[in-house]
Design a protein around this nucleic acid. Structure first.
Lengths: 237, 237
DNA sequence: GATAATCAAGAGCAGTGCTCACATTTGTGA
DNA sequence: TCACAAATGTGAGCACTGCTCTTGATTATC
């Protein structure tokens, strides 16, 4: 039976995260201010240190929060795909990628918090790694299923010994059916996806280079899906 | 004939950039302090505003500086490739990619300044876009040559209309021989490369996932080179 | 040589993260 | 029930930040 004080504490905690998230949306990670959060919480600045050790601790809270939301969005997007047959895997990857981009475009500051410059002096604690790889796991999961269904082309390039060893360990730890070379390609999909989204959100293409970034993204993800060995919908039968 | 004062000014300017670059290496973009630069310059904090309008202006200076160095490194790496025959294009792309990663690993803060979270409230001015695409241009140049030499496979996927229009304009403006679909793939190479480097520099792979990141990177870039249509060295003759 | 542009200094404003001594509230064991 | 201890909030304070403004010194130019 939780004491009322504990309840109040939990609620204050949630409130802090809420306000932090809100401010993050307005100013970006580097400018996030504990004092401003305290102000909006209606409390003097030093009081918030009773709940949050550090500015870094607040960032960690917000990082986990953001990872969770992004991970959830990608997972539900993948789960919501209704396509049937061999094309379903490619459709799932596309849906997950689209969800990633849409979340990032809608929440650029939070995306930046996760995949941009690490905040100065900030070292990610343990709690952030599990939610951090959720998106990657979702993508790899789809590819693993595709492989099990015999839809995924098996790459035949050879891997250097240390790379092979690392990937074999990953395959074991995650309990995958995927061959190691295919897992390597899954990594390419993952980092490629975030390269695309970063360039988009951080405006790395010139301002007037692309008129329809959504369509461009779609095409690029299609290329990544090719790379990873997923067949195109229109089969050359 | 430049007056001595103008000379002094230029030298001070260079000194500011030098110190800024140095501090950047220690603290990261968000924590870069004009006051600290002034201190090390041996001058009171307000004096540096005679040379640099803003903290943002200093960042712009450093951004251009970093873009130039990275661009130069990539260009000389590409120019230094001695491989002959059809394999030379792939070797050049690999060399450029390697140079990118090596520069980024050696200068994580400056890489972050270029490709990480845009600094809060910072809007890139005109001066930064030209040096900003130097790496991209170098890569595209290699691919264009490869295409002209008949070594680059021509992709046959179709492009959505807005994407095709944008890419066609790019082809025209840059005076490329490359088909638009190949340019699309060149973009994939570009963003993929920076996705890889970002993940590496910003520690996005778990801390203990990869034991030999250099080898892993090499493999991944190889995949991107495949994607873009460059033939592997070992031909299946 | 007088005038005007340039540069440096120093004080000051508003903001930041964070610490500490202190007061108040709240939970708990004797 | 009451005293004691833990938890929570306050306000002052330190050292730092970006940036502005006034004042004084230096330097170029007419």
């Amino acid at each position: 039976m939780p004491t009322p004080r504990a309840l109040a504490r939990e609620q204050t905690m949630r409130e802090i995260v809420r306000i932090g998230r809100e401010h993050l949306g307005e100013v970006g990670p580097a400018a996030l201010s504990l004092r401003a959060v305290a102000r909006e919480l209606g409390v003097v600045s030093s009081a918030v240190y009773r709940y949050v050790a550090d500015r870094d601790a607040l960032l960690t809270l917000l990082i986990v929060d953001a990872y969770d939301e992004l991970g959830g969005a990608v997972e539900t997007a993948i789960a919501g795909v209704r396509t049937r047959g061999e094309a379903r895997f490619r459709a799932r990857i596309l849906a997950g990628a689209r969800a990633t981009r849409e979340w990032a475009v809608a929440e650029p500051s939070r995306f930046a918090l996760l995949y941009g410059t690490p905040v100065p002096g900030y070292r990610a604690p343990r709690d952030t790694v599990d939610p951090g790889i959720r998106v990657a796991l979702a993508l790899v999961g789809v590819l693993d299923e595709a492989y099990a269904a015999g839809v995924l082309a098996s790459p035949q390039e050879r891997l250097a010994r240390p790379v092979r060893a690392d990937l074999e360990r990953q395959v074991r730890e995650l309990g995958l059916a995927l061959p190691t070379a295919a897992l390597a390609r899954a990594f390419a999909l993952w980092s490629g996806l975030f390269g695309l989204v970063s360039f988009d959100v951080f405006d790395q293409y010139g301002a007037e280079t692309l008129t329809d970034r959504g369509a461009f993204f779609e095409h690029q993800v299609g290329l990544l899906a090719d790379l990873v060995g997923l067949p195109r919908a229109a089969r050359a039968s």
